[in-house]
Design a protein around this nucleic acid. Sequence first.
DNA 1: CTTTTTGCAAAACCTTTGCACAACC
DNA 2: GGTTGTGCAAAGGTTTTGCAAAAAG
Lengths: 125, 125
Amino acid sequence: MRYSRQRELITDIIKNRCDHPTADMIYGSAREMEPNISLGTVYRNLKLLADEKEIITLETEDKKIHYDGDTSRHSHFICSKCGNIIDLFKPAKTPAEIEELGLSITGEKCIYYGLCNLCANETIE
Amino acid sequence: MRYSRQRELITDIIKNRCDHPTADMIYGSAREMEPNISLGTVYRNLKLLADEKEIITLETEDKKIHYDGDTSRHSHFICSKCGNIIDLFKPAKTPAEIEELGLSITGEKCIYYGLCNLCANETIE
DNA sequence: CTTTTTGCAAAACCTTTGCACAACC
DNA sequence: GGTTGTGCAAAGGTTTTGCAAAAAG
């Protein structure tokens, strides 16, 4: 992957925020430094960075992809009222430990990734 | 909420499948019974049912919403290769227990829902 | 009869993409 | 110089919505 000023800027923006911005929010920030940057470039680089696992994507109920520059293993808490996304840092918290933080859990969505039995046993790629 | 033949059909379809269909797949099934049903009706009812917590939504990386008629507390496993979504039934499994099922976990996304501290402490609605 | 729900089609929305030009190495 | 990345604008795909007609109670 070749260097590009735009990609470095986008990476910096994501890594230096503690919220979980959408592509549009990142575009807004990026334009402050790089007024001519285009939305397409932002999307292209976000996809690249996610593919390279330099950033994490969060698919939420607002139907926009949120990005997280922290790739360490941690989970998230989304406020049902304001929609704010809060990091739940490792070590992994149990529901009880999360509630001790003052967050009352009303629901959860946990998705694990990997290969299913069928795909894992396929000999031909 | 008033009765409608279409909503009952949609609910039946979701409750009687063990996969996690998208709106489009549900639309396809529904048309077999109700050839004139429209996509808009499917979307409207899916949103209604999700609001009423009769079904669950799953926001995945394929950018389509998947629906789950099983509202019991359970998590999901998505195969990174074929995209198949597998239910991980309760009692809640630890990563170790999931791997005993033959599923190798390479990643996870866990989102908890509730009210954040700010919203929980607001006196005025 | 009044209100809710539907079908249809258009609109809205986020994201992706084709292309010519610029930037990188 | 050859290749990769960008800007722009148009296209793509999923979901939402306005409206008149139909269904429900």
